[in-house]
Simulated assay, not measured.
Amino acid sequence: MASTKIEMERKIPVGISSCLLGQEVRYNGGHKRSRYCQDVLADCFEFEPFCPEMAIGLGVPREPIRLVGEADEKPRALGTVDSSIDVTEPLLQSGYNLASKRSHLRGYILMKGSPSCGMERVKVYHPNGMPNTSDSGIFVRALREANPALPMEEEARLNDAVLRDNFIARVFAYDDWKNSVEADPSYHNLIQFHSRQKYLLMAHHYQGYRELGRFLAESHELPLEQAMSEYILGFMRHMTHRATRKTHTNVLMHMLGYMKKSLDTETKQELLANIEEYRLGTVPLVAPLVLLKHYLKRYGGDYICEQTYLNPYPHQLGLRNYI
Results as ranks from 00 to 15, higher is better:
Tyr278Lys: 05
Glu270His: 04
Leu291Glu: 04
Leu285Asp: 08
Leu296Gln: 11
Glu270Thr: 11
Met259Gly: 02
Asn274Phe: 00
Asp264Leu: 01
Glu277Gly: 04
Leu271His: 03
Thr265Phe: 06
Gln269Asp: 15
Leu256Phe: 12
Glu276Asp: 14
Leu280Phe: 02
Leu285Gln: 08
Thr282Glu: 13
Lys261Leu: 09
Leu271Ile: 03
Gln269Met: 13
Val290Asp: 11
Val290Pro: 00
Leu285Pro: 08
Tyr258Ile: 04
Val290Arg: 14
Tyr278Cys: 05
Tyr295Gly: 05
Leu296Met: 10
Leu272Cys: 12
Thr265Lys: 11
Ile275Trp: 01
Ile275Tyr: 00
Ala273Val: 08
Leu256Trp: 02
Lys261Ile: 04
Gln269Gly: 09
Gly257Leu: 04
Tyr278Glu: 03
Leu256Glu: 05
His254Thr: 12
Asn274His: 03
Ile275Leu: 01
Pro284Val: 07
Lys261Thr: 15
Lys261Glu: 14
Lys261Phe: 06
Met253Asp: 10
Met259Trp: 00
Lys268Pro: 03
Tyr258Met: 05
Ile275Ala: 01
Asn274Met: 09
Lys268Gly: 08
Lys293Tyr: 01
His294Glu: 15
Lys261Asn: 14
Leu272Gly: 07
Ala287Pro: 00
Thr267Val: 14
Pro288Gln: 08
Pro288Ile: 04
Leu280Pro: 02
Tyr258Asn: 15
Tyr278Asp: 03
Thr267Ile: 15
Pro284Asn: 06
Lys260Trp: 10
Leu291Pro: 00
Leu256Thr: 05
Gln269Asn: 14
Pro284Met: 03
Leu280Ile: 04
Glu276Ala: 07
Val283Asn: 10
Leu289Gln: 10
Ile275Pro: 01
Leu296Lys: 12
Leu292Gln: 01
Glu276Trp: 01
Pro284Gly: 05
Leu285Gly: 03
Gly281Cys: 07
Leu280Val: 06
Ile275Met: 02
Val290Thr: 14
Val290Gly: 06
Asn274Arg: 09
Glu266Ile: 09
Glu266Val: 08
Asp264His: 03
Gly257Gln: 07
Met255Thr: 02
Val283Gln: 10
Tyr258His: 15
His254Arg: 14
Thr267Pro: 02
His254Tyr: 10
Leu263Thr: 07
Glu277Asn: 13
Leu296Ala: 11
Tyr278Pro: 06
Ile275Cys: 01
Glu277Met: 11
Asn274Cys: 13
Lys260Arg: 15
Ala287Leu: 00
Glu270Cys: 02
Val290Glu: 13
His254Met: 07
His254Gln: 14
Val290Met: 07
Pro288Lys: 03
Val283His: 10
Leu272Val: 15
Met253Gly: 03
Gly257Pro: 06
Tyr258Gln: 11
Leu256Val: 10
Lys268Gln: 13
Val286Gln: 12
Thr267His: 07
Pro288Arg: 01
Gln269Lys: 15
Lys268Val: 06
Arg279Val: 00
Lys261Ser: 12
His294Arg: 15
Leu272Ser: 14
Tyr295His: 13
Arg279Asp: 06
Glu277Leu: 10
Leu289Val: 11
Pro288Leu: 02
Gly257Cys: 08
Tyr278Arg: 04
Asp264Phe: 00
Pro284Ala: 04
Leu289Asn: 11
Glu276His: 07
Tyr295Asn: 09
Gly257Ile: 05
